[in-house]
Design a protein around this nucleic acid. Sequence first.
DNA 1: GTATTGGTTCGGAAACTACCGAACTAATTA
DNA 2: TAATTAGTTCGGTAGTTTCCGAACCAATAC
Lengths: 162, 162
Amino acid sequence: MQNISEEKCKLVEELGLNFEEKHNLPPLAGRIYAVMILSNVEGHSFEDIIEITCASKSSVSTNLNLLVQLKFIEYFTKTGDRKRYFRTTKNYLRITLEEYLESIEKELNLVKKVNSFNKEHNPEKFKKNKNLGLIFQEYLTTQKENLETTIQKMIMFKKELD
Amino acid sequence: MQNISEEKCKLVEELGLNFEEKHNLPPLAGRIYAVMILSNVEGHSFEDIIEITCASKSSVSTNLNLLVQLKFIEYFTKTGDRKRYFRTTKNYLRITLEEYLESIEKELNLVKKVNSFNKEHNPEKFKKNKNLGLIFQEYLTTQKENLETTIQKMIMFKKELD
DNA sequence: GTATTGGTTCGGAAACTACCGAACTAATTA
DNA sequence: TAATTAGTTCGGTAGTTTCCGAACCAATAC
């Protein structure tokens, strides 16, 4: 990490790790994304990212393209300038929330499947764990609803977002 | 997967993958855990698991011990029988929820840090994204509270659980 | 004692991931 | 046309993960 304050550098590492885990990104992609989240600049060039992250051209190329493909970032150009400039997409929070929603739905589905499988095949086990299973199912349902309303709220800010 | 129905086998794969992802377990550990969740039997022996999963002694040993260490499963013995028998711990749902809570707290913390960093260092960017940042923070807070009450509910069933 | 049972430990193989450097392409400039 | 710029593609390497088999250990059975 070059040319950035120590405070920022630490936050980049921390945020980067978080993105890496939560979105299953390679470490470098997580760091690049963190740099952009924490930056003043409207648009980092390819070169900027190489300098800041101290990574090779090829790695930066691969990871920038990955982030673009996953819609975490986007690029724009300036007339009379061959470079591409990258910035976070304005709706990355919505993407994150939608990812959460998807994963919650998947899990809720699984829990229901397990509950009904055990109900049918292991009735005495099901009875014993019924309350727990239902509490978990209830929790997931609440969370799903919560996510849906949050996403609705975000869409209300659409003009700002898109 | 031997000696289990096709339906169960499919569910084991699906559940196993889910545990693998959500709890960062090796594939075999995820499958073993899934087998136990979906089973009638009160206590699988070491041998049982080897047969069902078609994995080697050493792998089964390693992964059973991992699951025990992480408190996903526990073992008991029968008098006059040298074998160990494994079963899911009765509070694995609580463990899962507590893991969620921890990860939400971490993320909420990070979001706050990012918000205050941007407020200080990139004020115009912060202004532009303020509403989104706050909506996200609000969402995380609600979710955290939701989790806390759910865990409380679970603790109310303590007698059944522990 | 010796054999068997139940399980652990260790070394290594196979597969996967993340990154790098070198060679390359395609567009622009001189 | 030659050189430069901006970025991509490819082959390979280092590190990590997951699993296996073989050797091993400790307790019981013969």
